[in-house]
Design a protein around this nucleic acid. Structure first.
Lengths: 253, 253
DNA sequence: ATTAGTAATTGATTCGCGTCAATTTTCAAG
DNA sequence: CTTGAAAATTGACGCGAATCAATTACTAAT
């Protein structure tokens, strides 16, 4: 009982997510200082909101366990889903410029988060250059993630979108040190469809085809990837060769 | 001659873009310190690149005059256009997390920019909290702009996309204190089409209809908006009422 | 275990926008 | 001014994904 109660109460210095969360690149002493301002919340149940559009921005959130969906409502009333966030991800930083949350964030599963009051975080980051830099990096990554999403939406067809989604999900599980060919992902296909700018029917048909072709099996909350290479190819993911990048690396005189 | 030569050499303290660029919210003395690290470049010609994908990130750029297109190349080789940037906009901040520029940035018109070496900017921002905060805000805005773009791409049809593009462009000219119903915008319709995830043919047809309906005339580099309200409606832009926001403003217990 | 409500599946049909093709217009270089 | 290449325009046609509709499979609450 006591153990269970404290399970979600592990501090930053002992957290398994240090490599991908805030503390990346911080000294041990600095992690302790960061830890001192972190508020560890009791776990959220499925359907609970972390924040809603328009609320006064006070904290950013680091996810320790579970899944969080970030979305807005269009004026026609339908959801625009902007992302699904996993343990180690930090959300809420986009509210900064307006001092109000610009989106809604809801737990899709039992979810555990750390809340970090932003004014304290900002004060602390003025004293710890590495923390400040880390904050910049997190936001910079947020911009880039949005760009990838835009590219998916504007350039790829339905098959590529679904393939890319599963492939990139797999990569995220891998980066976190989890099994990346077989994992639990408790998100409705309906939500994935919306995220990809597709309808549930289209996603369902594509998943049926992926199963028939023995590439991916996605049933209920379980995803199993049988042919990761084929999946990457279908996703149209570029293989990063240093050559290509260097050829483009022509300086402006 | 001497005047012309110095026209692009105005310092931050006298720059007309203070309200929308970096100096927002800074004290006069701080602006002077910022000014001291700014490198004012000679104007770029149409087609010149500010930076290219993969180059080592060293500076962010504030645009003083002209237009800059930011884009990437997909593995199929076609352009993914991520935005058009106007005077007062700051670009390059997304390169931060990887230390390499993640996009290409090219001048579409004679363009004047300030380059700000990022290591110096970061050092200075550690000494000036307001500057650090402003940097956070700029990046936060970048994230939100990306989200708006994603929403356009995933939820709106071709007519709404084009209408929204012109309307939002108009708003940006307004915010900069320029004429917002009649202005010069030296960007190819082909590029706008790519940005909107459409083909040039589709954009051309829609512009023809907008002209027939006496809403917008876009010929060559000139845009003239005759019916801004109609345009906003067509764009499907939500009218921000405080009521709606407050209704959503339900705190999590 | 039963049941009601939500999600997923599958098929038939529709339609918005892309593709292809042919002119016309624009713009920069000589 | 001339000329050639790039951009924009306009029309005909086809396809991919949305929509509509009906059935089946889950899930959670009684």
């Amino acid at each position: 009982m006591g153990e269970l109660k404290n399970a979600f109460n592990i501090g930053c210095p002992n957290c398994g997510l240090q490599k991908i969360c805030f503390p990346t690149g911080l000294m041990r002493a600095d992690i302790t200082r960061l830890d001192s301002i972190v508020e560890r919340k009791t776990p959220l149940q499925k359907g609970d909101h972390l924040y809603r559009f328009g609320e006064i921005f006070d904290s950013v959130f680091a996810i320790k366990a579970g899944v969080v969906k970030v979305y807005t409502l269009t004026n026609q009333g339908d959801e625009q889903i902007l992302g699904f966030y996993l343990p180690g991800d930090v959300i809420g930083l986009d509210a900064l410029s307006t001092k109000q949350y610009q989106c809604n964030a809801v737990a899709l599963d039992t979810t555990s988060v750390c809340a970090i009051p932003f004014d304290q975080l900002e004060t602390l980051s003025m004293q710890i250059p590495a923390l400040n830099h880390q904050l910049f990096c997190l936001m910079s990554k947020g911009v880039n993630d949005g760009r990838v999403h835009s590219e998916i939406l504007s350039k790829r067809n339905a098959d590529q979108r679904v393939a890319h989604f599963i492939w990139s999900l797999s990569q995220r599980f891998m980066n976190r040190g989890y099994l990346h060919t077989e994992f639990r992902f408790n998100v409705l296909q309906r939500d994935v469809a919306m995220y990809l700018g597709l309808t549930p029917e289209t996603v369902s048909r594509i998943l049926a085809r992926l199963a028939k072709d023995k590439v991916v099996y996605w049933k209920r909350k379980e995803i199993q990837i049988s042919d990761l290479d084929k999946l990457r190819d279908m996703a149209g993911e570029k293989v990063h060769t240093r050559e290509v990048e260097n050829n483009l690396n022509v300086k402006l005189g």
